[in-house]
């Protein structure tokens, strides 16, 4: 059932699916489908951003005081890490488009490393600190440093749900990038075919977009 023909330079040349008339339509069809998926992603995160806005308008002083417990240096570091990883993804795609497979793989490994670094900062530094302090959602909240403002646990509920859903997206992205690396080593991606790179790239930039808004809303704007 091979739709692909191996050639001497280890590039596996792409054959379009039988349901597509040509590669151009296959490529643009896949992309349109993914843009529509990203539209639904806006709505999923959007519901949480509306919840954030609603509770912030109810308890502005709580959000002002509670946001001071988050680490701006760590948040800034992770912002830089994600922005850099968006850059390495576009460079991986660009490398495939000019048939530079080694560079493409290098950029993909760099992206995977940066994604791992982001999760490491979250899971090894930020979240354990909150578990230690008791700045946690709902009934798990035990911190006594914010007793002068109402319902501080709501801030941490929103924080953990929103950055948690974002973190799940990062983990899924790491899985997808690993898959790209495996396929890349097989020689699947080159100038004539790079659709999965392009699609995962869009996904990864969207994850970056969400963080671009999470960072100021939780860490900076008090």
């Amino acid at each position: 059932m091979s739709q692909q023909v191996a050639v001497a330079d280890k590039i596996v040349r792409h054959r379009v699916g039988h349901h597509w008339p040509n590669a151009e339509l296959e490529f643009s069809g896949a992309k349109l489908g993914f843009w529509i998926f990203l539209c639904t992603e806006i709505l999923m995160f959007g519901g949480l951003f509306v919840a954030y806005t609603y509770f912030r308008s109810l308890y502005p002083e709580t959000f002002h005081e509670a946001h001071k417990t988050l680490s701006i240096p760590l948040g800034t570091l992770n912002t830089g890490v994600l922005i850099l990883s968006s850059f390495t993804v576009v460079m991986a795609i660009r490398s495939a488009m000019v048939n530079q497979r080694k560079a493409m793989l290098g950029y993909l490994y760099a992206t995977l490393f940066l994604a791992g670094a982001f999760m490491f900062v979250k899971l090894a530094f930020e979240w354990p600190h909150k578990f230690h302090m008791g700045t946690l959602p709902a009934a798990f909240y035990t911190y006594d440093g914010l007793s002068h403002v109402p319902k501080p646990h709501i801030f941490y509920g929103l924080y953990f749900v929103m950055t948690g859903l974002h973190g799940i997206h990062v983990l899924i992205g790491m899985g997808l990038i690993t898959w790209l690396i495996i396929q890349g080593h097989k020689g699947v991606f080159y100038k004539g075919y790079f659709t999965p790179l392009e699609i995962v790239g869009l996904y990864w930039h969207f994850v970056d977009l969400v963080w671009i808004y999470l960072f100021p809303l939780f860490y900076l704007a008090g």
């Binding site: 792409h14 040509n22 590669a23 151009e24 490529f27 660009r94 100038k191 004539g192 075919y193 790079f194």
Partner: peptide, 11 residues
Amino acid sequence: ENIHEVDHEPL
């Protein structure tokens, strides 16, 4: 004429 491969210029 190659219907199996795209040919795009990167930025």
